[in-house]
Structures are given as structure tokens and as C-alpha cells.
């Protein structure tokens, strides 16, 4: 999400390369298969922009391993945020798209970086406007800590302790047109 984005900064440390990201997502896919006996009830709901791409990749890994085609969707959180009007930049809204009805299904929210938890709170709110899933789970490529809400991830690619002032940047080929990578920026 936008809060983790950064364009230029003095020091940039590589955290994950393309291969590390691939392995992390593959492992998450295995965990999702283990945790969900009925994979056909699962919906991978990506948060734009990079969560949508990560959800797509998780779906591919799950299909390779289990031969089950898991449904994917998009859950936009911008219009469900609690800070509209207080940020200098208005979050851009995207079209949400989930397979309906959600009743009796397990929705897995997918995002690139889990930080304060406020984006996930907004996603929970957004999903409930579509219906009442049986369960909602959370998958994130990076968990960088500093939660401001009682939210935790069910599936994490990499736990990365950070300082608040540091920034995490995730780059994915399909979204950013540059090689897959995770970077840490320090002031």
C-alpha cells in the first residue's frame, strides 16, 4: 500500500530477491493448503495494487501443488479507510471484485506489507459490505511489526523487525516493471 512506498532515499538494503519472494509465496501456498481442507471454498482477495498480484501468484502455486483452481478477487480499501481528509494525498480508489456470495467461504486477505494493521481493518470492513464469509484470514509477504490494532497475520512470508522511520518497498515485475525485490530504506 501507499504508506510503504518510497522512491529515493540515501541507504537501500536488499531484503529479498526474486528467488526469496518465490520461495516465501510457495511456502505460504503450502500453508494455505494445509489450513484449508476445502480449498474450493477459499477466495484469495488481494489489496491493490501489489496484493492483487501476490494473490494471483499464490493461486498459481496452489494450483501447481493441489490441482485446485482457487478463486481470486480484489478488495479495495481506499473508501473504507478511517483517515480520509487527513492525509495530504487522497487514496486512489479501485474497483473491488469478489466472487459472490461469500457465505460459507473463507476469504484470505492478501497484501504485500503488514504494518499498522489499519489497511487490514479497512479490508475487513470492505469485505463485510459484500456479505458474511465463514472465515477471514490474512496473508502478507512481509510483516514489519508496529501494529496499532489487534490484528495478526495467518500466513507471513518474512517477519522483518523494523524501526518506524524505516520504509519497506516491495517491487513486483507485473506491477512495477522491474525485477521482484523487497528493499529496506533507512533515513
Amino acid at each position: 500500500m501507499n504508506e510503504n512506498e518510497h522512491t529515493a532515499s540515501p541507504t537501500r538494503t536488499p531484503i529479498m530477491d526474486a528467488e526469496a519472494i518465490r520461495r516465501a509465496l510457495r511456502r505460504i501456498a503450502h500453508e494455505i493448503i494445509e489450513q484449508n481442507a476445502d480449498l474450493r471454498s477459499v477466495v484469495l482477495a488481494g489489496i491493490p495494487l501489489r496484493g492483487v498480484e501476490i494473490a494471483r501468484r499464490l493461486g498459481e502455486f496452489i494450483r501447481e501443488v493441489s490441482k485446485v483452481e482457487v478463486e481470486t478477487g480484489t478488495i479495495d480499501v481506499a473508501m473504507h479507510r478511517d483517515d480520509v481528509g487527513t492525509r495530504p494525498e487522497l487514496p486512489v480508489v479501485h474497483v473491488s471484485n469478489l466472487p459472490l456470495p461469500l457465505e460459507h467461504r473463507t476469504v484470505i486477505i492478501v497484501d504485500d506489507v503488514l504494518f499498522t494493521g489499519r489497511t487490514v481493518r479497512a479490508a475487513l470492513d470492505a469485505i463485510s459490505s459484500f456479505g458474511r464469509p465463514a472465515r477471514i484470514q490474512l496473508a502478507a509477504l512481509i510483516d514489519r511489526g508496529h501494529r496499532e490494532l489487534p490484528i495478526r497475520a495467518d500466513y507471513v512470508g518474512k517477519n522483518l523487525p523494523t524501526a518506524t522511520r524505516e520504509q519497506i518497498q516491495v517491487r513486483l515485475q507485473q506491477i512495477d516493471n522491474e525485477p521482484d525485490a523487497v528493499w529496506l530504506f533507512k533515513e
Binding site: G85, F130, G131
Partner: peptide, 16 residues
């Protein structure tokens, strides 16, 4: 994005 909201079960978002 807002047209999609009109197709939801709950057609209301907290943005404003």
C-alpha cells in the same frame, strides 16, 4: 470503483 459499491449487499462506505 463507486459504481461497484452499488452492487454490494451493503451499498454504503464510510469514506465521508
Amino acid at each position: 470503483a463507486f459504481k461497484q459499491v452499488g452492487t454490494r449487499e451493503i451499498k454504503k462506505v464510510p469514506a465521508l
